[in-house]
């Protein structure tokens, strides 16, 4: 079984995030990039499948982005046990999911992966579309929000998380692209021998160009304004109550 795990470098929660001068992106120079959380679970699931099948399966970590931001992410995947890495180098800040999925698909097509795992969504942009779009572009069956996987009789069964505590089991034929929910397993720590061995593993670098006709653009990125205003209600008790009721009902709409 050949499994690709899409993994993305995102700004860490601990970084102080500033908007850059173009007002369409953040200042990456002051940000520490880390592995997107749900991608870690996707990688762990792939590694566990490989270990369970024990038939020489291969796990490949795949990422896209700039060299500076992503090198740690790929090494982390290799240190944890992925067999090799594919890095689609792209310094563009285009965030259009369709363009991104197209670039991934073009470069992954010839690999003929049986499974593509991705995280449920990237914690920076949260569009949650990449895995599904790649599945569609590569003619794979797709499922999202996987919280359990089971490989049986040449198919993969996925337990999906629905709303309000409901679940759904779906069975997909291979090849399949599945997005994985956080919390599905316990991601391993990279061992020291894994860390030291990572640099000896194959890491293929592909120069990738995103479409110059994105279907989505950032127009303006801004920090929500927090405004504090205190309204003083004065008068006799009845007047104050009436005024307060009016505010709660009509302005704040917290009672009807």
């Amino acid at each position: 079984m050949k499994i690709a795990v899409l993994t993305k470098a995102i700004p860490s929660y601990e970084s102080s995030i500033r908007i850059d001068s173009s007002s369409t992106w953040i200042d990456e120079s002051v940000v520490n990039f880390v592995v997107n959380e749900s991608d870690s679970y996707a990688l762990e699931e792939a590694l566990q499948i490989k270990e369970k099948l024990d038939n020489g399966s291969e796990v490949v970590v795949v990422t896209m982005g700039s060299q500076d931001n992503t090198s740690k992410v790929l090494k982390d995947g290799l240190a944890k046990g992925a067999d090799r890495a594919i890095f689609i180098q792209n310094e563009d800040s285009n965030t259009d999911p369709l363009s991104i999925a197209k670039l991934f698909s073009q470069n992954l097509k010839d690999e003929n992966f049986d499974l593509v795992f991705s995280g449920l969504q990237s914690d920076d942009l949260g569009s949650g579309q990449t895995g599904v779009l790649i599945g569609e572009l590569l003619g794979m069956s797709t499922a999202t929000l996987g919280i359990e996987t089971d490989i049986q009789d040449g198919k993969i069964k996925i337990k999906r998380e629905l709303e309000s505590g409901w679940f759904q089991w779906v069975t997909l034929p291979f090849p399949a692209s599945v997005s994985i929910q956080s919390g599905i397993n316990e991601p391993r720590y990279p061992s020291l021998k894994g860390i030291m061995g990572a640099k000896r593993k194959e890491s293929k670098v592909i120069d990738g160009q995103l479409s110059d006709d994105p279907k989505q653009n950032f127009i303006n990125l801004f920090v929500p304004k927090t405004e504090k205003a205190t309204e003083k209600i004065e008068g006799d008790v009845d007047g104050i109550v009436a005024k307060l009721m009016d505010i709660l009902k009509n302005k704040l709409r917290v009672i009807s």
Binding site: S71, K72, D76, A79, Y189, P190, L192, I195, K199
Partner: peptide, 15 residues
Amino acid sequence: TDEHHALYKTVKEFG
């Protein structure tokens, strides 16, 4: 090196 940083991360998270 990257390996020192990666070791630091593993140990920090483990702790």
